[in-house]
Design a protein around this nucleic acid. Structure first.
Length: 209
DNA sequence: TGTACGATCATA
DNA sequence: ATGATCGTACAG
């Protein structure tokens, strides 16, 4: 591994989320708080677009919640789900055009003790960041981190490029937990025990007839 | 003003 | 398979 890992730039992330997703695999997201440093090697991601993607938070236009997704690339989009969890995305594309990459899972490579302290229910090392809310949890990220610029030299949350991943080693499939656009294979992962298991989204309202 | 439903996780 | 738990979006 390089002595000084290269930081992702806004320019290289200002591409289609599908391309940004592949780019991020093998990279590392690292966050520093007063508690310490935790770093996670990214092994599973999902791409989300805008008005043409029914599964995206931006499908129905710009709102206060999804505003960051419409902004410039390289920002962190953090959202709150199920009344108790946060998930983190890397914004892609350019100012005014929505797109993001959900960080779904990773391997903790720095700060294992702090990661376990933040997620006491984790029964193994691989489980620490196996899933988007777990990954966000070990990094100590919440709504206060929404919009932070990951490309800033002094950012407390950093996005570092890893060793290049061979295209042939990237697997793809439908996105986890979404009930629409089930045929769209915008989930990307590389082999790792931290990769989460596939589950299709559930639709509660049914037409009674 | 009310309400349905999540880009999830933990436990059983 | 199910409960937890609340912000958001949209309907009325």
């Amino acid at each position: 591994m390089p002595a000084t890992p290269r930081r992702f730039t806004e320019q290289e992330l200002a591409v289609d989320p599908v391309d940004a997703a592949r780019l991020l695999l093998g990279g590392t997201i690292e966050s520093t708080t007063d508690e310490g440093v935790v770093g996670v090697r990214i092994v599973e991601v999902e791409a989300y677009r805008g008005g043409d993607d029914p599964a995206s938070h931006c499908y129905r236009g710009r709102t206060p919640r999804n505003d960051v997704m419409f902004g410039p690339a390289g920002r962190l989009y953090v959202y709150f789900v199920y009344g108790m969890h946060f998930c983190a995305n890397v914004v892609s594309l350019t100012d005014g055009v929505p797109g993001a990459v959900l960080l779904r899972a990773g391997e903790v490579v720095t700060g294992s003790a702090l990661a376990h302290a933040r997620r006491p229910s984790a029964r193994s090392h691989a489980e620490l960041a196996k899933g988007p809310a777990r990954l966000t949890g070990v990094l100590g990220l919440d709504r206060g981190h929404n919009g932070v610029d990951l490309t800033e030299p002094d950012a407390t949350v950093r996005l570092l490029a890893g060793d290049p991943v061979d295209e042939a080693d990237i697997r793809t499939g439908p996105r986890v937990g979404v009930a629409v656009a089930v045929d769209v294979p915008w989930r990307f992962w590389i082999d790792s025990p931290a990769v989460s298991t596939y589950r299709r989204g559930t639709r509660r309202t049914r037409v009674v007839g």
